[in-house]
Design a protein around this nucleic acid. Structure first.
Lengths: 191, 191
DNA sequence: AAATTCTCTTGACAAATGTCAACGCATCAA
DNA sequence: TTGATGCGTTGACATTTGTCAAGAGAATTT
């Protein structure tokens, strides 16, 4: 149940067995089924989720009722609405399971406790944030001023495994194009 | 010379006078003139810059030679290429001064030193990263699936002071639209 | 198994945005 | 002062992408 998390931590900081046990103790395992929500728009996001197994995605809904996919999360990734988590203001995001999934949850108090009592945890958190920040910046570079086809190519390069696990219309939304356009691009690229 | 930095730190963590002095000691002040580069594509980014006064922006250059503006930075903001800074790989970004500016620089060693020896500094860094991450996520929400006019309106709301200090074509690039389109949108919005 | 959703595709057309070229008006340097 | 350069605007037109509507097949539910 904790393999992915342990791997993620050891990958980034040297942690003692004791520290790992402490972490294990403070995370709450949770199973969630496909199409269930981890977070719904309007609620305060009071936890971060680490994905042990399965996949989820987050999205917001715009004025016209369109979904805008913000993030996908697979095994070994974190997902949350950090804005709401840190400010405790209601979230504008939904987080929904794409597949039946196993999560490790950490609420605000547990997070604060680990920050205070496990020095390696703050470092781990900082490194996760660094990586997440860099990934977002790359995403922006891969969104701005590119054609739909270029965006899709870059996406394929960066997340080749996504294709099999994520419905195409969600990828389209993630890229900021319509499902029809994506369908046509794929047809065109097939040559 | 350190007002903005002190303000930024005190805003986020309780710091003693001694800790502040230590920070001051490890930052390197630097003046940079309009149009000078803090970082050039191909070089490794070995420092983070805090803006005490003035403004800068970062951009990458795409295959067709177009600038893509990644970030603006004004007084009280940080700017760097964190990807290059952390991995020590050559950067794909340029960072250039928009106005004559005063910066406080921190290289990799100085950063590591402060992380190790000033506990509050790691917390400060984490909070800066959190905020930067949230800001990037909002930017993505404000980029995907919006019309050019909506993007510009959101930009104006979020950074109203930018207008006077940043050339219009850089704002266009930041929004991922052409200068001509931005010009037309402004004309249309003027009514 | 039948019915109901989902998901993806396709076509015809509309709307948004980009491209290219020209021009005016500042600013700056010689 | 005189060029030269950078920035913003405008027009005509091309291209890309979105919208709407229909349908086919797969997956899910009853």
């Amino acid at each position: 149940m904790f393999e992915q998390l342990i791997k993620s931590i050891q990958d980034k900081v040297p942690a003692t067995e004791q520290e790992l046990q402490l972490c294990k103790h403070y995370f709450t395992p949770k199973k969630i089924r496909r199409k269930q929500f981890l977070l719904q728009e309007g609620d305060v996001c009071n936890r971060m989720a680490f994905v042990e197994k399965g996949s989820l995605y987050s999205y917001s809904t715009d004025a016209k009722g369109n979904q805008r996919v913000i993030q996908f999360a697979f095994e070994g990734w974190w997902i949350s609405d950090l804005y709401s988590f840190f400010t405790k203001e209601p979230s504008s995001l939904n987080i929904e399971a794409l597949e039946d999934s196993e999560l490790l949850l950490l609420d605000h108090e547990q997070h604060e406790y680990l920050l205070k009592n496990v020095p390696q945890y703050e470092t781990y958190t900082r490194m996760i944030l660094q990586n997440a920040y860099v990934a977002l910046q790359r995403r922006i570079e891969g969104t701005i001023g590119l054609t739909a086809e270029e965006k899709y190519s870059r996406f394929l390069n960066q997340y080749p495994t996504c294709l099999n696990r994520v419905p195409q219309h969600l990828i389209a939304s993630y890229l900021g194009i319509t499902p029809e356009t994506l369908s046509r691009i794929r047809k065109q690229m097939a040559r």
